[in-house]
């Protein structure tokens, strides 16, 4: 990335809920959305530059986020990703709906 994302006020769109989340970010590299495999779906995008922020596998219980859901420092908007991680362990057979 040209100058990366570093801050605690970056808006990110959760594509599943349509909610905008204010997030903590710190990265200088990003995944190119055009290179994703068919079993990877985009869950979050940056509203600063449209870059990829979150993915989930459609055939395995796994997901990923580019920024810092743990904040520290920053807002707690993304704490629900930790809840999602725990929920996946509660229901190992949880299947991501594509």
């Amino acid at each position: 990335m040209k100058f990366g994302h570093h801050g605690a006020n970056h808006p990110v769109l959760d594509k599943d809920t349509g909610q905008v989340l204010i997030t903590s970010q710190n990265h200088g590299f990003a995944v190119d959305m055009a290179t994703l495999s068919p079993n990877v779906r985009v869950t979050h995008v940056s509203l600063f530059d449209g870059s990829l922020q979150g993915i989930a596998l459609t055939d395995k219980p796994a997901f990923s986020f580019q920024g810092h859901p743990e904040a520290s420092p920053g807002p707690h908007d993304l704490a629900y990703l930790f809840d999602r991680f725990v929920a996946m362990m509660e229901r190992p057979a949880l299947k991501e709906s594509a």
């Binding site: 100058f3 990366g4 570093h6 801050g7 605690a8 006020n9 903590s24 710190n26 990265h27 200088g28 520290s72 420092p73 920053g74």
Partner: peptide
């Protein structure tokens, strides 16, 4: 590498973040 961070608080957390 010189980078900029726009956070208004949390300088101690930023300094100790291994990602930096």
């Amino acid at each position: 590498e010189v980078v900029f961070n726009t956070a208004m608080t949390g300088y101690q957390e930023i300094l100790t973040d291994p990602s930096y």
